[in-house]
Amino acid sequence: MNTVLKNRSLLDISDNGLFPPSNVMLDLKHLKKVYPTPKGDYVVLEDLNLQIMKEEFVTIIGHSGCGKTTMLSMIAGLNKISGGNISVLGSHIKGPGPDRGVIFQAPSLMPWMTSLQNVLLGVNQVFPHATKAQRNDIAKYYLQKVGLEDAFHKKASDLSQGMQQRVGIARAFAIKPKVLLLDEPFGMLDSLTRGELQDTLIEIWNKEKITAVMITHDVDEAIFLADRVVMMTSGPKAKIGDILEIDFQRPRTRKTVLEHDDYYKYRKHLIDFLEH
């Protein structure tokens, strides 16, 4: 990770398209999204360019309705691209696929399955040639990582929201995606649970280093988790407004981040952007 950061600091990172191509995991080029309405086309995103590096954690922040979720679901392949393209490791995406794991805003677990079955649903799909025991081990490993070692066989509908979202995290990591997409995953949780889940997420991410793109409304969350915070302008025709590099050491703890001299500088930068 550090080598990547160093390489990056040699370049002007505030512009797109300047990374060495081999380091780019996710590449959004001239991305456009148009919704036709009776009163004519509504342009949500226009000429949006963004490159995300391997092993990078990017958070995206912007006002409600600016098209963040649209952009993320386009990367996931769940929403059609109106113009431009998205590529993962240089090849254009065609529809959804397990190379891009998604953690949704609602936990979206199948309520009739146990937490283990929910994780296995993805694992079975991605590792069809593994033995049953191996797949079980993978699922159990990630459930342990998110702190659910006692809840393997609990029905998803019997878990609390926070626990359900933990299963969601385990499900996403267990399929070993190239890119992890997180759509405000903690938005529906109370702030205590949110903090706990941020810690869980960053702990497991530190081990796996899966390129991550996460939408959030929470400025502190954006700074705590990210290598870069991408700020989007308000729609219609939203695009990237500004990008803020967060230069904290990893692994981070909440305490060191909050006590860091630059923390309030970053925070002020983001809030100034959002208030304009």
Partner: peptide
């Protein structure tokens, strides 16, 4: 949401019907 999960995991039609849609 369930359909999206099925899409992201690329479940086949058989699995999609029996593991997600029917339950």
């Amino acid at each position: 949401d369930y359909i999206n999960v099925a899409k992201v995991l690329k479940l086949g039609p058989f699995q999609k019907v029996f593991k997600v849609i029917l339950p």
